[in-house]
């Protein structure tokens, strides 16, 4: 940020004196297309969702029922069960994304040979559609004809084919693994970018002082990346908590509800049980939870900016 003289929160001070004050409002013209567009395609549907959450919907008819949908959702054990599954799914996935993404970025940053090729290679899981990735894994994990069981059996790690998606524990582990496989590259990419911004002089100075690799990591790399990692993990939480593609394709929420994350419950309530009002209520509750993370994110970024300015 060293060469930046303004942020969104501070007006372009140096300009007003030059007779450009008259065009101040032009800024809104630049924003208008984006804001109007998003208002039309997102806000209208959003209001519709809020409105729906207070209605009892029967096909094309609806009646206002106040908070009854919310009451019903919150009284149903299924919601709390899904919330627990979601929390577990999100926390395991995000922690693994950040840890593995960081390690991978550090490793890739150290090597000099085939860097670009390897970076592209590591990005592949994130490039293909989650649905496609999940379908490939479904095929790998197939109990009778899948290659994973074959490999593990021949190496001797397992003694009989495992039904990975068939029992609650392994199914949860499987969908989380696929989510980790898919999400690590994004954190890796961000971290790689972050590593490039760390001034080389800091490392050189440390080397002169005879610092070990671990000390350099601990006292230079990590502090420099701290802000980035917090931002990245917050963005990741927001993404993963809404994510449904992988679970939708691999387990549909089963077995016995072991992978029924909130978006799965939402989808099943809306398009299997046809209870749109309750689904909208679940959606609004999910949204509020995401908003808490978003608020955290905003606080962190603001704090980060203030740090920068000092």
């Amino acid at each position: 940020m060293s060469n930046t003289t303004t942020t969104t929160n501070t007006p372009a001070r140096s300009w007003t004196g030059r007779g450009l004050a008259r065009e101040r409002w032009h800024g809104y013209l630049f924003l208008a297309p984006t804001l109007l567009f998003l208002a039309a395609v997102i806000v209208l549907p959003l209001f519709h969702a809020f409105w729906t959450s207070f209605q009892r919907i029967r096909g094309l008819n609806s009646t206002f029922i106040g908070f009854a949908n919310y009451v019903r959702v919150l009284e149903d054990e299924a919601f709390w069960h899904s919330l627990r599954v979601s929390l577990a799914f999100v926390s395991v996935s995000v922690v693994a994304h950040v840890l593995l993404g960081l390690l991978l970025a550090l490793a890739l940053n150290k090597i000099t040979f085939a860097r670009t090729a390897l970076r592209v290679l590591f990005l592949t899981p994130w490039m293909v559609a989650a649905a496609v990735g999940a379908t490939i894994w479904l095929w790998l994990l197939e109990p009778q004809f899948g290659v994973l069981n074959y490999i593990l059996l021949s190496v001797g790690i397992i003694s009989a084919p495992v039904a990975w998606l068939g029992t609650p524990g392994t199914a949860f582990a499987a969908v989380t693994t696929v989510e980790i496989w898919r999400g690590v590259p994004f954190i890796m990419l961000l971290t790689l970018a972050g590593l490039q911004t760390i001034p080389a002089e800091q490392y050189e100075a440390a080397e002169i002082d005879g610092a070990t690799s671990w000390q350099k990591f601990r006292h230079i790399t990590l502090p420099n990346l701290k802000y980035l990692l917090v931002v990245a993990s917050t963005l990741d939480i927001i993404n993963v908590v809404r994510h449904y593609d992988i679970i939708g394709i691999m387990t549909g929420g089963g077995p016995a509800g072991a992978t029924e994350v909130l978006p799965a419950l939402l989808y099943n309530t809306a398009f299997r049980a046809n209870r749109f009002g309750e689904a909208a209520a679940i959606g609004v509750l999910l949204l509020s939870m995401v908003l808490i993370f978003a608020a955290m994110y905003l606080r962190i970024t603001r704090v980060g900016q203030e740090d920068d300015r000092r």
């Binding site: 998003l38 997102i42 549907p45 959003l46 969702a49 927001i238 449904y244 978006p263 939402l266 994110y297």
Partner: peptide, 12 residues
């Protein structure tokens, strides 16, 4: 802007 990114797709 961030808010619009967070909506669960199913709702929309």
């Amino acid at each position: 802007l961030l808010f619009t990114k967070m909506l669960p797709e199913t709702l929309l």
